[in-house]
Design a protein around this nucleic acid. Structure first.
Length: 512
DNA sequence: TTTGCCGGGTT
DNA sequence: AACCCGGCAAA
């Protein structure tokens, strides 16, 4: 009996694990598609574009924390420049340019204070090439060269739907900047983003609908990256039909339709409010560090929590599990940022209290435990994640992630679900009466695990526990909160239910 | 009462 | 296995 139960759980957990990342069984084969953000950026064949610099940016940002590069631009005292300060593009006057240190002391006109920034973060006002992102790319001599390029980019051409990516990018860039510990992007930065965005389009586009996520998130559901997101089955039009209409090559039945819908809905998904800022919070026990970029948080986790072991393949993407995405309004973000600023990386905060505005649930929070607890073999933290992703609202049916897992009951999906906590999925699930969604259109997936309030503790326990606590003997599995196929599709559309539901078994599509 | 799904039966 | 369903228990 207990064995049966545990087996069930195990099965499930395994499934869950897959959701997060490729399982050991999937091995290498599965891994590639789900490259995490870090890795993803690199391998991802960027679509040909003139802007190589920008494309590489993500990568650069990640691996070029050093500021070794010296810029060839010589700033003259009194020269008017733009500088990134606290996530904002500020105008200032050059006070001093230290070639040796690659630092430029700038007097900020607006803030009325003097700051010292890296040359990469400063650019001449005349250039008007606010492509701050590009700067960090090549701290080296090439940095200069890039500017012109980005400047020439035609901003207007940019797709409107890339907003999320842009913000993401911006966040990454910002974090990479060392100008100030906390960079927050006030409304004013928007313009910059757009501009930079143009420059970076290539990068973003490379991902495109099909694999945009790859760079930042994983795999197939690039949608998660924010480009497209699966939408809940439309009541009116069954996904099935939609799918056919679009002639999408889906393999899965009943659910495959989801992907297509978004294509349709394309515009809808990416409507993140400008005022909402995404932050990434470290979920490591006793560490509430909040960073503005995935890269930053990953780096933080790797460096401080995972240690050097990260190198091993095993942990390669493990860091993905230890952070969560938070969406906060500008003000909150600011506050948070400020607060964070006080935190020294690695400084443990006793209570990673969730910000009120936190909308996304740590998808990643749950995963880790699962992995640890359930997968006996080497971990495949392979969460793909990477991308800016959104968090799915707690109330939202976890469906997307599981979407592909349809029929999991019979066979576990061999692919991992790309959606990760950090990925923005601008899902437009109409339904869920969630409270969280009010804040932002973006939803984050959350497994129905408990309290967002104490992510750390939860994780901890999971990490320590070897076996799922749940597996109490004989205890009937608690009913999940997630909507099940019956609810979602209705009895009329029973054919769209996952197999398990049809068999009156535990739903495998909308896992709890 | 509805819903989720366990346990067990049938094909 | 895949599929089905009686029946229990939570909601």
């Amino acid at each position: 009996m207990a064995s049966v139960l545990s087996r069930r759980l195990g099965k499930r957990s395994l499934l869950g694990a897959r959701v997060l990342g490729p399982s050991a069984s999937e091995g290498p084969s599965a891994a590639p598609p789900s490259e995490p953000l870090l890795e993803g950026a690199a391998p991802q064949p960027f679509i040909a574009s003139d802007d190589t610099p920008c494309q590489e940016q993500p990568k650069e940002v990640l691996k070029a924390p050093s500021t070794s590069g010296l810029q060839q631009v010589a700033f003259q005292p009194g020269q008017k420049v733009y500088v990134w300060y606290r996530g904002q593009e500020c105008t200032g006057l050059v006070e001093q340019h230290s070639w040796m240190e690659g630092q430029v002391t700038v007097w900020l006109l607006e803030q009325k204070l003097q700051v010292s920034c890296r040359v990469e973060e400063v650019w001449l006002a005349e250039l008007q090439g606010p492509c701050p992102q590009a700067l960090p790319l090549e701290p080296g001599a090439q940095a200069l060269a890039y500017r012109p390029v980005s400047r020439n980019i035609d901003v207007p051409k940019r797709k409107s739907d890339a907003v999320e990516m842009d913000e993401m990018m911006a966040a990454m860039v910002l974090t990479s900047l060392s100008c100030s510990p906390v960079v927050q992007s006030p409304p004013g930065t928007e313009a910059n983003f757009s501009a930079s965005r143009a420059a970076c389009d290539p990068w973003k586009e490379s991902g495109d609908v099909s694999d945009s996520g790859s760079s930042t998130t994983s795999g197939h559901w690039s949608g998660s990256s924010g480009v497209s997101t699966p939408s809940p089955p439309h009541p009116q039009a069954s996904p099935k039909y939609l799918g056919d209409a679009f002639g999408s090559p889906q393999t899965d039945h009943g659910f495959e339709t989801d992907p297509d819908p978004f294509l349709l809905d394309e515009p809808a998904p990416r409507k993140r409010k400008n005022s909402v800022k995404v932050m990434y919070k470290c979920l490591w026990p006793n560490c509430g560090k909040v960073l503005r970029s995935i890269v930053g948080i990953k780096r933080h986790i790797k460096a401080l929590h995972l240690g050097d072991t990260v190198d091993s393949d095993q942990f390669k993407r493990e860091e993905d599990f230890y952070y969560t995405e938070m969406q906060m309004k500008e003000e909150s973000a600011t506050a948070a940022a400020a607060a964070v600023g006080t935190l020294v990386p690695g400084t443990p905060t006793t209570e990673p209290t969730p910000t009120p505005s936190m909308t996304g649930m740590p998808l990643s929070a749950l995963p880790p435990p699962l992995h640890k607890a359930q997968s006996s073999g080497p971990e495949h933290p392979g969460q793909e994640s990477s991308l800016p992703s959104g968090a799915l609202s707690k109330s939202a049916p976890g469906s997307f992630w599981h979407i592909q897992a349809d029929h999991a009951y019979q066979a576990l999906p061999s692919f991992q679900i790309p959606v990760s906590p950090h990925i923005y999925t601008s899902v437009s699930w109409a339904a869920a009466p969630s409270t969280a969604c009010s804040l932002s259109p973006v939803r984050s997936r959350s497994l129905s695990f408990s309290e967002p309030q104490q992510p750390a503790p939860v994780m901890k326990s999971h990490l320590i526990v070897t076996s799922p606590p749940r597996a109490q003997s004989g205890a009937r599995k608690a009913r999940g909160e997630a909507k099940k196929c019956r609810k979602v599709y209705g009895i009329e559309h029973r054919d769209q239910w996952c197999t398990a539901c049809r068999w009156k078994k535990a739903c495998q599509r909308f896992l709890d």
